[in-house]
Simulated assay, not measured.
Amino acid sequence: MSQARTMDGKVVIVTGAGGGVGKAIALLAAAEGAKVVVNDLGVSLNGEKQALSPAEQVVQAIQTAGGQAIANADSVADWDSAQRMVEQAVDTFGRIDAVVNSAGILRDAIFHKLEPADFESVIRVHLFGAYNTSRAAASHFRAQGGGALVHMTSTSGLIGGLGQANYAAAKMGIVGLSRSISMDMARFGVRSNCIAPHAFSRMIESVPGLSPEEQERYLEKRRQTTRPEQIAPLAVLLCSDQAKDVSGQIFGARGNEVYLYNQPRPIRTLQRGEGWTPSTLAEQMIPAWRTSFTPAERTKDVFGWEAI
């Protein structure tokens, strides 16, 4: 007798699933038995419309492999579109069991050159997008007594990076959103977790800072050691019943590594019976805590070892 697959009987929406991490998750979820709504707006990272439909291509790949999937081209940044996406899943497959929020864009700029439109557009796709799709699914999850949300955060927010204040702000907002959902919806059996992925994708490829030759060498190495397919197992697990007791967490996946992030908690305290003034804080707090301050590190400083 063949072993039951991880996602048999489940219906999953994967946003931004026309390529990269989202595509890999959609393909694996389908291979594990899920019926998948493959959402992709069909645009480039800067928001330009593409002639072909990446979502339709992923659907065809799933169907060719014997799975079930439908394409969806709604925008996660729009409330009504997110509602239609979930309605399409329920109308087509009868239910909705999980949403993976993978859709994203980049509008990188050093902060003093970051335009309001580019800040807002990134926030709307990533943070509003995660809210819109999660909220659209929440009523169904509550009614059926369960569901799973998986959100893509980023080391750009968790650790730090250059030229991505809009992206980092959105990704840290997603962490807070996920944590709150995990608490608010726990009574209904709903789980919410984050993944900070390291994977070669259109987003990684678009990050500037190296000469063309250096960038090609760097990207070729990343293509081999940090692939979207290495992120997918963790995301699919978190959508499945095998992770029914896991919620409110931040995971990472990098090459063949998976890891768990800590979350902000107080690490040092000082108390002064008569209270504080700016001067006494400067005299006592700063010297006492200086060695505990988080340094201005970037992702590459924290992950000093090679992915394998």
Rank of each mutant, 00 (worst) to 15 (best):
R5I: 04
T6Y: 08
A17M: 07
G18R: 02
G19V: 05
G22H: 02
K35R: 15
L41N: 07
E48A: 15
A51D: 13
P54D: 01
G67S: 05
Q68C: 08
A73L: 14
V76T: 15
V76C: 05
A77P: 13
A77I: 14
W79V: 15
R84A: 11
T92S: 06
N101P: 14
D108Q: 11
L114R: 04
A117K: 11
D118A: 12
L127S: 13
L127G: 04
L127R: 02
Y131D: 00
Y131N: 02
S134A: 15
R135G: 02
R135Y: 10
S139H: 11
G145R: 07
T153Y: 10
S154R: 09
S156E: 01
L162G: 11
Y167T: 08
L177T: 12
S178Q: 06
D184Q: 14
M185N: 03
A186G: 06
F188H: 14
G189D: 00
G189M: 00
F200H: 12
F200R: 02
S201G: 05
S206W: 08
V207Y: 07
G209W: 09
L210C: 04
E216I: 08
E216T: 14
R217W: 03
P228F: 09
E229D: 14
P233T: 11
Q242M: 11
G248Q: 03
G248N: 06
Q249W: 00
A253F: 06
N256A: 11
N256R: 14
N256G: 07
V258S: 10
Y261N: 05
L270N: 01
Q271M: 02
G273V: 05
G275T: 02
P278K: 03
Q284C: 03
M285L: 14
T291S: 13
T294F: 13
D301G: 12
D301S: 04
D301N: 14
F303H: 10
A307H: 10
I308N: 14
